[in-house]
């Protein structure tokens, strides 16, 4: 029995995965309908925003840490901390951090501009997440290097109003 179904390419695992994907697609469709007033989510729009902010440069992975709750019950106010490893001296500091999301109606989140007077390249705030998604940050250093980090938050109640 099991062998048969597997030879058909229809194992239990695959079947469940398929149902899961279908569910996701349905949830996506519902959100598009709800946000039809604004604009549909453009895949890749968050990368365009980041590219524009840093002049098309490609980052290396590392140095940027994003802390969020793994499961955010209320997408209207999700706590987030973005920290960049840097001594923050006059010669070696973080100039800017650009933060975006990959599944909100608009990808922009914030850009933070530090100075050596900041002492520590770390900020915390609270954000809106319409659904489960990734938050991606690029950090521009004073030596011109570019670093990136990401984190995912699972959202049970979306936070776009409507």
């Amino acid at each position: 029995m099991r062998k048969d179904s597997e030879s058909n390419g229809l194992s239990r695992r695959r079947l469940l995965a398929g149902v899961g994907a279908g569910g996701m697609a349905l949830a996506g469709a519902m959100i598009v309908v709800r946000d039809v007033s604004a604009q549909a989510i453009q895949p890749g729009a968050h990368l365009e925003v980041l590219n524009k902010a840093v002049g098309g440069k490609q980052p290396q992975a590392g140095k940027v840490r994003i802390r969020m709750p793994e499961i955010a019950e209320n997408g209207n106010t999700v706590p987030i901390t973005v920290a960049v490893d840097s001594p923050m001296t006059g010669q070696d500091f973080v100039k800017a951090v650009h933060v975006v999301t990959d599944n909100n109606p608009r990808p922009e989140l914030m850009s933070v501009f530090f100075t050596p007077l900041s002492g520590k390249a770390e900020v915390s705030t609270r954000i809106r997440l319409a659904q489960t998604m990734n938050v991606i940050a690029y950090a521009e250093m004073s030596d011109g290097s570019l670093w990136s980090g990401r984190a995912e938050a699972k959202v049970t109640i979306g936070g776009c109003g409507g």
Partner: peptide, 12 residues
């Protein structure tokens, strides 16, 4: 200057 930030509509 200590810090500046540009905020988007996704800030709560």
């Amino acid at each position: 200057d200590v810090i500046r930030a540009d905020w988007a509509s996704a800030i709560s």
